[in-house]
Structures are given as structure tokens and as C-alpha cells.
């Protein structure tokens, strides 16, 4: 059984490390608006090992449950903070005295997000894309367009974050239905959280929000330009019915459905609902 280890400097974020030698994948779980690491993702923690015969990649995956303040902190700031966490995990910078025995880096990164967590993840990816692009353009001010594209491609291809797999459950990327609270009432605790949240953050998650618009536009443009960058494209999984977020995604992205599970149930595996275990994969 995996035993949780809190990650210093990141509040209630914790890791569940694989006991297999040479874990090659880091899976980072990012909860949504008003969520919490265990409450949102409950049962992933225990079931991944129980079902490792059916879903063998979990046996060599380390799991990281990220905790963050989702009700009062703007999306852009949360994307920065998540980026810091991802760097710490990827470079194994949190285990001062207990570093991995095999001294190997991870080969793959999976970012699993729920609701607002999906927005924060996509913003992190776009920030990274724009940062790499700016760095390459600044370093090569005089090269022609073709050489620039080649330099960019090389830099983007070698970035671990841009090569990550995005697995988004009911992402709020196309907006949240804050105009009607009825959907929220199916989880009364979340409803109370939403009422007490900062109206600024709520507004950021509205369908017409400039924060969501810019993210959509930027991601779609980047994907059109560099289609091979894995993290710029995903196929989100939505519960049916979901009355909290709009079940829609970016241009060309196929939607997957999980009938019978609502906004909150879609990301919770249990003995009779294994789809989430199957969905978070490479």
C-alpha cells in the first residue's frame, strides 16, 4: 500500500509513490473550484494498485495530489504556482533526504485536472509555450522565418511540460454555469464554497470571461502552428449530465462522455466505476 508523503512548501499536497523499482511516470492531480486533493480524487489513491493488472501503467506511476487555493486566487496566478509545483515534482526537488534510489528522472508526465483544475493546467501549458517561444525569438533576432520555426520546434519538442499528457475531467475551459446555481446544489458543500468564493474568480470562469477567451484563442493558435505538441490538444471527459460546466472544448477536440456520472462523480473511480482509472493514461 502506498503511504502519503506531504510535499514541503505546498500545503496539503502529497505524493503516493510507487513501490516498483524505476517509476517512470509522474501523474499530477489538480482539483477544481472549491475542491480538495482527497475529496475530489477519492479512491484513485487505493484503487490504482488494486487494479494494476488491468491498468498496468499505474504500477510504475508516482501520484501527486496538488492542493491549492481555488476560490480567491486568479487563474493566472494559480497557473504560475502549479508550474512551480510541477518543476519540483519533475526534478524530484522535494525529497531532501530520501531521493529516488534509482536516481533516474521521470520519462513522462500526466496532468490530470478536474473542472477549474483543467483551466489552470491549460493556462500553465500556454504560459510555457509562450515563454519558450519568446526565449527562442529573443535569442535569434535575425534568423529568417523558416530557421525560426525550426529553432522553435526544436525548443518546444524538448520541453518536458509541453510533452505532457493532459487528462481533463469536466474542464471549465468553456465556462461555468454560475448564472444558475441549481447544478451546484447537487453538491451542497461546493455550492456553499461557490457562494463564499471571490466574485472575481467566479467571473473568470464565466463563459464570456476574457481569461477563458484568451486561453482558448492562444491554445488553438499554438496548436494550429505546432500540431505535434502533445499538451496543446486533449480529449476531455464529461459526465452526463453535467449542470455545472459547459460540455464543450477547443476547436477540433473530441469530447468523451461518462453517462450516469455528474460533474463531481466523473473523476471519482470506485469498484463499479473504473473509467477514471482507464482515462488517466499515456
Amino acid at each position: 500500500m502506498r503511504v502519503p508523503k506531504y510535499i514541503p512548501g505546498y500545503g496539503k499536497s502529497y505524493a503516493l509513490l510507487s513501490s516498483a523499482p524505476g517509476a517512470d511516470t509522474a501523474v499530477i492531480f489538480v482539483h477544481g473550484f472549491g475542491g480538495k486533493p482527497t475529496s475530489t480524487w477519492r479512491n484513485f489513491q487505493g484503487l490504482v494498485d488494486e487494479y494494476s493488472t488491468e491498468y498496468p501503467w499505474w504500477a510504475t506511476s508516482d501520484m501527486f495530489f496538488y492542493a491549492y487555493e481555488s476560490l480567491h486566487t486568479p487563474i493566472r496566478r494559480n497557473a504560475e504556482l502549479l508550474g512551480d509545483f510541477v518543476q519540483t515534482v519533475w526534478h524530484d526537488g522535494w525529497r531532501a533526504t530520501n531521493r529516488r534510489d534509482d536516481n533516474q528522472n521521470y520519462k513522462d508526465l500526466i496532468l490530470a485536472g478536474h473542472s477549474e483544475g483543467g483551466v489552470v493546467i491549460r493556462r500553465l501549458i500556454l504560459d510555457r509555450y509562450e515563454a519558450v517561444k519568446l526565449a527562442v525569438e529573443t535569442a535569434n533576432p535575425t534568423v529568417d522565418a523558416e530557421a525560426m520555426k525550426a529553432a522553435l520546434k526544436s525548443a518546444l519538442d524538448s520541453d518536458f511540460l509541453l510533452a505532457s499528457y493532459l487528462r481533463l475531467f469536466a474542464p471549465a475551459c468553456m465556462g461555468t454555469n454560475f448564472s444558475s446555481w441549481i447544478g451546484f446544489l447537487s453538491s451542497f458543500s461546493l455550492f456553499v464554497s461557490a457562494i463564499t468564493a471571490s466574485s472575481l474568480v467566479r467571473n473568470e470562469l464565466l463563459p464570456e470571461s476574457p481569461v477563458l477567451d484568451k486561453l482558448k484563442l492562444g491554445t488553438e493558435q499554438a496548436h494550429a502552428e505546432f500540431r505535434e505538441i502533445r499538451s496543446l490538444y486533449t480529449q476531455p471527459l464529461f459526465g452526463v449530465p453535467d449542470q455545472v460546466v459547459y460540455s464543450e472544448s477547443y476547436q477540433g477536440e473530441k469530447l468523451l462522455w461518462d453517462r450516469g456520472y455528474d460533474h463531481f462523480g466523473v473523476c471519482k473511480p470506485d469498484y463499479t466505476h473504473k473509467k477514471p482509472l482507464e482515462f488517466v493514461c499515456k
Binding site: T38, S39, L190, T196, Y271
Partner: peptide, 29 residues
């Protein structure tokens, strides 16, 4: 008060649900 209420309700929901889940598993579903 609002934030604490949300936490407490979430706690009850999740503790009850986690308990039911283990009870269900014990009965071989």
C-alpha cells in the same frame, strides 16, 4: 463561517461515502 460550513459538509459527505464504499466492497459488491 461559510467556508467552514463547506468544509464540514464536504467532510461528512466524503467520510460517509468512503465508509459505504468499504462496506460495499466487504460484501463483494
Amino acid at each position: 463561517i461559510g467556508s467552514g460550513l463547506a468544509n464540514v459538509l464536504n467532510y461528512w459527505e466524503e467520510m460517509d461515502s468512503a465508509s459505504r464504499s468499504v462496506e460495499h466492497a466487504d460484501l463483494n459488491f
